[in-house]
Design a protein around this nucleic acid. Structure first.
Lengths: 205, 205
DNA sequence: AGCTAACCTGAGCAAGTGCTCGGAACTACT
DNA sequence: AGTAGTTCCGAGCACTTGCTCAGGTTAGCT
């Protein structure tokens, strides 16, 4: 599976124009990936589209992978942010499991839907995806939240094998959302699926 | 996302040695994809590893994608075969839902585990994966089986929104198996996860 | 104004890629 | 043995890729 590339950024821009250059590069990398797929992302094209010379690209990123990794990391950080915000709001809600879960699921769906093309390309085509720290953080965060939620409600919810159940439950929910957002058949509305998903989660608890 | 490549095979081999050539090409394509990833699969390398000249490769496959698609299709056909066999056996079992579901899940897990490296690479890296007919057939088959199963037991099982529920259920089961086989954390044994998965499916019905 | 560090440029290199094509070798059939 | 079709060969073409480097431009300071 090829050796691990260096995904770290090379140099932090300090001046304002340099920051703009880096932003432009990350933007066009994300756009290109989302609209034309991984194979279409070449460093030359990214630089050209960003209105920046290819030399400048390599001033800040050690290689192509680091550029794409950073562009994806940025999007993932936003998804994590919006998802945790949704969770906080859900926890602040009056104590009805249904309303809370519903609110949280919808926050996740909305966060991913905003970036669906980019995420689709990333999940299907980016070979070094799982080396991106932010992605592991996202799934770790979900697992952690789930395990905490289980501990809190350990008197209400009972699993035969709590650890395995929680892991599996979260994996299923996560991928159900991926399916719903990215690969949903056209005759099933998003609304129906989210509603049903909430039902199922409640059934499993 | 680039335009659709022609994935059909170019010419069917008729003589025995030609069949052996095609087999060798498909084998080494699959091996290379499984062990080193999509980026490492170049037509020259595949031919070399197969002990065949590059010209021969293009005698049978119109382009690189068609070669890889056929190698994957072959593996998927095997998975479909073993999965449906497992389902038939499960249906022949004495009428206990738990035993049947358990048997079927195990058949799917086993079929995929046999080819885990190849499937992992395919799912993570092959850009035109969803244009491969055999993959759509696999997911269609699962959905169909699930819908049929629901109709058969419509007096026992009741869903508020049957169609959406079944779709989501099957998606969740499928991806739970993918997770279990391909991305399982080391501290959770496969056995625990399969057992738990069967529990959850029963809960949802 | 002068100077240093930060920033940008783009022609072009080395290393690949997918694929072609003219011809040689083999097989099957008369 | 003759021959038509099938199969195989591999040098090499046309092209793309990631990336370098020598030199120019701009910003921020004293």
């Amino acid at each position: 599976m090829a050796q691990v590339p260096d995904l770290r950024i090379k140099k932090q821009p300090t001046q304002g124009r340099a920051k703009a250059t880096v932003e432009a590069l990350l933007d066009s990398a994300a756009q290109l990936l989302a609209s034309e797929g991984y194979a279409a992302v070449s460093t030359n094209r990214v630089a050209e589209r960003a209105g920046v010379s290819i030399g400048s690209l390599y001033e800040y990123f050690p290689n192509k992978q680091a550029l794409i990794a950073e562009a994806l990391a940025r999007a993932l950080r936003e998804v994590v942010g919006e998802t945790t915000a949704g969770l906080r709001e859900a926890l602040a809600l009056p104590d009805q499991p249904r309303a809370g879960i519903d609110h949280w699921m919808r926050a996740m769906v909305a966060a991913m839907e905003k970036r669906d093309a980019l995420l689709r390309a990333a999940l299907r085509e980016v070979p070094f995806l799982w080396q991106i720290r932010e992605l592991r953080e996202l799934s770790d965060m979900l697992q952690q939240v789930a395990q905490e939620g289980r501990l809190k409600s350990s008197r209400v919810v009972h699993f035969e094998d709590p650890e395995a159940s929680t892991w599996l439950l979260m994996s299923m929910v996560w991928s159900a959302i991926l399916q719903t957002v990215l690969y949903r058949p056209s005759h099933l509305s998003r609304e129906r699926l989210v509603h049903t998903l909430v039902d199922m989660v409640l059934k499993l608890l």
